[in-house]
Amino acid sequence: MNAQSRRRTFLKALAGASIAAIPSTGEASLLPLKSKRLKTSLNAYSFNAPLMNKMMSLDELIDFCAGVGFDGLDITGYYFEGYPTVPSDATIYHVKRQSFRKGLEISGTGVRNDFTIADKEKRKKEVQLVKNWIEVAAKLGAPVLRIFAGTQKNEGVPREQITDWMLKDIETCVEYGKQNGVIIGLQNHFDFVQTADHVIPFFETIKSEWFGLILDTGSYRIGDPYKEIERTIKYAVNWQLKEKIFVEGKEIDTDLERVINLIKLSDYQGYVPIETLGAGDPKVKVEALLAKVKKYL
């Protein structure tokens, strides 16, 4: 797809995104819930501080997840020693084997990329970063690699122009993911992608079974987050289900029953990784959130 065709498709999708007919939460709550194959997972960022300061190892994290009853674990790339350099096969296969021996699956992994960078040569390095970790994901047995849109402000550059180069870069990564059996998941991270109106055109432009949304419940911070989740849930290939959500700019406890009912009403099946943030003992917080999620799953 050339840039002109890509732009036309994206703008058409953008125009339709804001007028899509979506059932209200009230209507959805009256529908029978579908039987689902939904499994729990932990996003390792919940233990970001102890992992980064070496107070906890990946082996210890695996042991913890198995001990409290998770089905899977999402290990972001930067928790491997030496990131962004790709770890050795020995390291990758050690983590894979340890997870298997503990009865855990690797539900995903991710990188910290930025496709909003204006410098084309620097963006090539970002694409290569994603490609490198696609290969890691394949060796780990992780079905999904999480990527970001980016954070650069690029004052004076039209959003449409940034979107054009971003779509091209993502398409390149999606094709490489397909070649390696790894799905590329774009996370709504309250950066360049903040709302459902931002999310939808990406998936209406790049229509590939190897491209999906990492639906981050805590990063829809404009408008009604539950309605934003409803509008984009059909693109989800993985989740970050967080303990807090933003309603009218205020951070409050997530209505977990409501979110999980939305998942059950959708076509999504698979892992629902949880993530806790902020102050407090991550072990205590994670166990508490897991218990609540299991109740509704």
Score class of each variant (00 low, 15 high):
Phe148Ser: 00
Phe148His: 14
Phe148Ala: 01
Gln152Glu: 15
Asn154Lys: 08
Asn154Gly: 10
Glu155Met: 10
Glu155Ser: 12
Gly156Glu: 10
Gly156Val: 03
Gly156Ile: 00
Gly156Lys: 13
Val157Met: 03
Arg159Phe: 07
Arg159Gly: 00
Glu160Leu: 06
Gln161Pro: 00
Gln161Asn: 09
Thr163Pro: 01
Thr163Asp: 13
Asp164Glu: 15
Asp164Pro: 01
Trp165Asn: 06
Trp165Arg: 14
Met166Lys: 00
Leu167Asp: 05
Lys168Ser: 13
Lys168Pro: 00
Asp169Cys: 07
Ile170Leu: 06
Glu171Ser: 12
Glu171Trp: 10
Glu171Tyr: 09
Thr172Ile: 15
Thr172Arg: 14
Val174Gly: 10
Tyr176Trp: 14
Tyr176Glu: 14
Gln179Asp: 11
Gln179Arg: 12
Val182Gln: 06
Ile183Pro: 08
Ile184Glu: 10
Ile184Val: 13
Gly185His: 09
Gly185Asn: 08
Leu186Ile: 09
Gln187Met: 08
Asn188Val: 11
Asn188Ile: 02
Asp191Tyr: 07
Asp191Val: 10
Phe192Cys: 00
Gln194Trp: 04
Thr195Val: 04
Thr195Ala: 06
Asp197Ala: 12
His198Trp: 04
Val199Asp: 01
Val199Glu: 04
Val199Arg: 02
Ile200Leu: 02
Pro201Ser: 07
Pro201Val: 05
Glu204Gln: 15
Glu204Ala: 03
Glu204His: 08
Glu204Ile: 04
Thr205Leu: 07
Ser208Thr: 03
Trp210Asp: 15
Ile214Asp: 03
Asp216Arg: 11
Thr217Ala: 13
Thr217His: 06
Thr217Cys: 08
Tyr220Phe: 15
Tyr220Gly: 02
Arg221Glu: 13
Ile222Tyr: 12
Gly223Arg: 00
Gly223Ala: 09
Gly223Ile: 02
Pro225Thr: 06
Pro225Met: 03
Pro225Cys: 06
Glu230Arg: 10
Arg231Asp: 09
Thr232Phe: 08
Ile233Arg: 02
Lys234Gly: 13
Lys234Met: 07
Lys234Thr: 10
Tyr235Pro: 11
Ala236Glu: 03
Ala236Ser: 14
Asn238Gln: 07
Trp239Leu: 01
Trp239Lys: 04
Trp239Gly: 00
Gln240Gly: 06
Gln240Met: 11
Leu241Ile: 14
Lys242Ser: 00
Glu243Asn: 13
Lys244Ala: 01
Phe246Cys: 04
Asp253Phe: 04
Asp253Leu: 11
Thr254Cys: 05
Thr254Asp: 00
Leu256Asp: 06
Leu256Lys: 05
Leu256Asn: 04
Glu257Val: 08
Ile260Arg: 12
Asn261Glu: 12
Asn261Pro: 01
Leu262Asn: 07
Ile263Asn: 01
Lys264Tyr: 05
Lys264Trp: 12
Leu265Lys: 14
Leu265Phe: 05
Asp267Met: 11
Asp267Ser: 15
Tyr268Cys: 11
Gln269Trp: 03
Gln269Cys: 12
Gly270Ala: 10
Gly270Pro: 11
Gly270Phe: 12
Tyr271Gly: 02
Pro273Gly: 05
Glu275Val: 13
Glu275Ile: 10
Glu275Lys: 15
Glu275Pro: 11
Thr276Trp: 08
Thr276Ala: 09
Gly278Glu: 09
Gly280Met: 09
Pro282Asn: 10
Pro282Gly: 09
Pro282Ala: 02
Lys283Trp: 12
Lys283Asp: 14
Lys285Asn: 14
